[in-house]
């Protein structure tokens, strides 16, 4: 069973629908007992980093996320919250991945970074199997994560930024796989296969 974390900053319908289309068994919950009994977690997120951290706090999910050993896939803001901090509202994140989120410079490019983009570089990893640098994904975000030791793939918009990341039992994608057509489905399928092996 996969659990989609239910908190106010999640785009739950899109992620649920994507899993449903793939025939994956899932539940939407914020009950930590249920989360502990899941095989893996999907941690979605849209909106403002600060409001999202507040929403996690209200549901007592911050410590759970920081300490869980379950596989977790953060999507969009869900990925961004894995980092130490964000310029957005000067928010402290979960601190699982090293680094701070910064805002794209709207004097240099249109902000948000919105639309389909490919990868500048993509490492060989089970979560990106079947995808190449030309594989386009759908992005919409104004803040970006730095490219560092946790980056598996990066994208380019004004500057290079982290697109697929991994650290221990945490994975994250800046784009929306649930909205990225066939390529997004490949990535979600890779995550499902990855957690089957980890079981």
């Amino acid at each position: 069973m996969i659990s989609i974390i239910d908190y106010k900053a999640g785009n739950l319908a899109s992620v649920s629908n994507a899993l449903e289309r793939m025939g994956v068994n899932f539940q939407v919950t914020y009950d930590t007992t249920k989360l502990d009994n899941s095989d893996a977690i999907i941690f979605p997120g849209v909106g403002h980093a600060q409001s999202a951290m507040h929403a996690l706090d209200e549901r007592n999910l911050i410590d759970w996320l920081k300490t869980t050993k379950k596989p977790v896939l953060g999507i969009c803001l869900g990925m961004q919250l894995l980092y130490e901090s964000s310029e957005e509202g000067n928010t402290e994140g979960l601190g699982i991945i090293h680094g701070r989120l910064r805002k794209f410079d709207d004097k240099a490019v249109k902000v948000p970074h919105l639309g389909w983009n490919d990868f500048a570089e993509l490492s060989d990893h089970p979560i990106t199997a079947g995808l190449g640098t030309h594989s386009m994904m759908y992005y919409v975000h104004s803040y970006y994560a730095p490219v560092n030791e946790s980056t598996l793939a990066y994208c380019h918009y004004e500057i290079p930024f982290a697109s697929v990341v991994a650290k221990d039992n945490f994975w994250g994608v800046q784009f929306h796989p649930e909205k990225s057509g066939h390529n997004g489905e490949i990535l979600l399928k890779n995550y499902i296969e990855l957690i089957q092996k980890l079981k």
Partner: peptide, 11 residues
Amino acid sequence: VEKISKVINIP
């Protein structure tokens, strides 16, 4: 909207 979002995998 509910029906569309069930079948469409683009924004």
